[in-house]
Design a protein around this nucleic acid. Structure first.
Lengths: 208, 208
DNA sequence: CTTAAAAAATGAACTCATTCAATCTTTTTC
DNA sequence: GAAAAAGATTGAATGAGTTCATTTTTTAAG
């Protein structure tokens, strides 16, 4: 059986993560003090820092859980995408965007992104970066799938195209969380317009 | 004549910005304390906060000066770009990248970007965002110029293409400053590969 | 020139995030 | 099962960013 120590550790970790996530939701990131998180998790402040390097780190951890769900839900679309390139790309991207604000506010996204840029070496920033990479791969895989199906012309560098589409949507998402007034619908429309030229040009002539 | 008050204000502002920029260069961002910046600028800590909202803000201000230079140097390329689409795009982008590390370290970029994401409402974040927008416009203008010249096919949405190219290079730049091991050369190569499919596809057939 | 009002500067006090030496708990050794 | 070693927890102390009531300086009014 797993040792007592390992079990206690897993349990404390879960409690801290849960306490932080709930406090962030209730009072926002800035107003949630480490002391409060520790108290709700029934550990000391010092223990908090045994589990997370700093305050931003634990927010990135909660965001990572979210991204993992997005990745999972994207699989279905990559498996069985709409027929045309543009529709397929938009279906996947809209899925990403729709998921983004279910559990997390724009503020939380801002801080998570900022933290992952500012302290790229912290364990959870690495994790976040790795998940970003997997999202990027997912877009590339979709383009490859469309290529196999004949919807995208052969000879196109599917990976390069996938990366460009992903980087574009990621940057647009940053813009979206930066600007409180921007709606999800406006974001989707803008990205759709940006994708159109590339999507049409890489598509096989008869299928467009 | 400009009142005494206005002159003193401009002068203090200049001193604070200069003090911060030099301290950041000498000891790095984290080790530069507001107290030290204030002392070097010969103002009090409180006065510092009358001019800048927080520590990140003044870094964003120094970075903004930098971006302004990059914008300026990009004008020449947009005025008179290389003949082919790919070469023209790469010339502009390489110019951006080459400029980026002249005065600023990767660490400073990280913090400036993080701050501008985290506090999008602060005046200098707005300024930074605005400069980003102008860089994006510059790329779009280059594509439009190529279109007028006949290097890019008519009927292509030049603005959409420019935005996508810019967002891609911007995201890649974030990746670059996040990863200390990544070299400028590697960055350029990656972006060149990503740009190739789009650049070739939008080019007029005979010119490629 | 004096006085009142407005604008800015000041720095001590405050708030947290973070650290670390001391303490306690679990595991391993014999 | 006692003792030693390893692993974790603890919370008071630290230190840096930020605030704000007070003071000083500048401008405008009489």
């Amino acid at each position: 059986m797993t040792g007592l120590r390992a079990r206690q550790k897993a349990d404390r970790n879960r409690r801290i993560l849960q306490a932080a996530a709930s406090l962030f939701r209730e009072v926002g990131y800035d107003s949630a003090r480490i002391e409060d998180i520790a108290e709700r998790a029934e550990v000391s402040v010092g223990t908090f820092y045994n589990y997370y390097e700093n305050k931003g780190d634990i927010l990135v951890a909660t965001v990572s859980m979210e991204v993992e769900e997005v990745l999972e839900s994207g699989k279905a679309i990559v498996e069985n995408p709409p027929a045309t390139t543009l529709d397929a790309l938009q279906a996947l991207i809209d899925q990403y965007f729709d998921h983004s604000l279910v559990y997390l506010s724009k503020e939380m996204w801002r801080i998570a992104m900022a933290t992952s840029i500012q302290q790229p070496e912290s364990p959870f920033s690495r994790r976040y970066t790795e998940l970003d990479g997997r999202l990027c791969d997912q877009v590339s895989m979709l383009v490859q799938k469309l290529q196999l199906r004949g919807a995208v012309m052969p000879g196109i560098d599917a990976v390069a195209v996938g990366q460009m589409v992903f980087n574009n949507l990621n940057m647009m998402f940053i813009e979206f969380v930066r600007e409180d007034a921007l709606t999800l619908e406006a974001l989707k429309e803008r990205v759709a317009r940006q994708n159109r030229p590339l999507a049409l040009l890489i598509s096989s002539p008869r299928i467009q």
